[in-house]
Design a protein around this nucleic acid. Structure first.
Length: 210
DNA sequence: GGATCGATCGGCT
DNA sequence: GCCGATCGATCCG
């Protein structure tokens, strides 16, 4: 499968986020492919977005968000977890798509080793879980996902019809009314795993704040 | 310099 | 359902 090009990422963040659903995230680890279908994402757009790490302007931490599209922004949070974003739009404008969940497609055995004994549904269903499963940490902060020798990249896979996609407010964000209300989370509707608390914390998830 | 809290997860109650 | 983990950025003094 062809890889997603820089031109793909250097577009409106909301469009990129929607179109990333169904594509494949690939991590080459110890010569082995660990990969999954992207099934949940969130968009963070500009300094005006009060939920974005860029809301206070550029810092050392969020610097990749201001860089060229197609690079990774990996941040460390809560003292334990890493989360992966792909930078979008033009250089100088801070925007990115947070990858929140994957459906494992390749190398799930290796993922399981990294994740410990958790139910399969929890292998990559969460922004920090998928980073642990694929071995994504600080070393990928700022990495170019479009480089020919990248060990982390995205491949064109399945385009999803709108019927298969749902949107809603972003999870766990703080900010102003606009940030709380913006339907900038996209996820694949639960097909078979049944609905409910498993997997991606899905459908209705009340944003906790005021 | 110190306190606070976060785009979270897993374990325990 | 709450709690702890314990880094980094921000804000306050």
């Amino acid at each position: 499968m062809p890889r997603l090009s820089r031109d793909f990422f250097a577009r409106d963040t909301l469009v990129v986020a929607r179109e990333l659903l169904g594509q494949r995230l690939v991590r080459v680890l110890d010569g082995q492919r660990l990969a999954g279908r992207i099934v949940e994402v969130e968009a963070y757009v500009g300094e005006e977005d009060q939920a974005s790490h860029a809301r206070f302007g550029a810092t050392r931490r969020n610097a990749p968000m201001y860089g060229p599209a197609g690079h990774a922004y990996v941040y460390f949070i809560y003292g334990m977890h890493y989360c992966l974003n792909v930078v979008t739009e033009r250089e100088g404008y801070p925007a990115a798509v947070l990858i929140r969940a994957l459906e494992p497609l390749e190398g799930s055995e290796a993922m399981r080793v990294r994740r410990g004994s958790v139910p399969d549904v929890q292998l990559t269903s969460g922004p920090a879980r998928l980073c642990q499963a694929l071995g994504i940490d600080r070393q990928f902060d700022g990495a170019d996902l479009c480089a020919s020798d990248a060990l982390l990249f995205m491949e064109k896979d399945t385009a999803l019809l709108d019927d298969a996609v749902a949107t809603g407010p972003r999870i766990g964000v703080r900010g102003d009314e606009i940030a709380l209300a913006a339907p900038w989370r996209w996820y694949v509707r639960e097909g078979r795993e049944g609905k409910g608390r498993n997997g991606t914390r899905d459908t209705q998830h009340v944003t906790r704040n005021t």
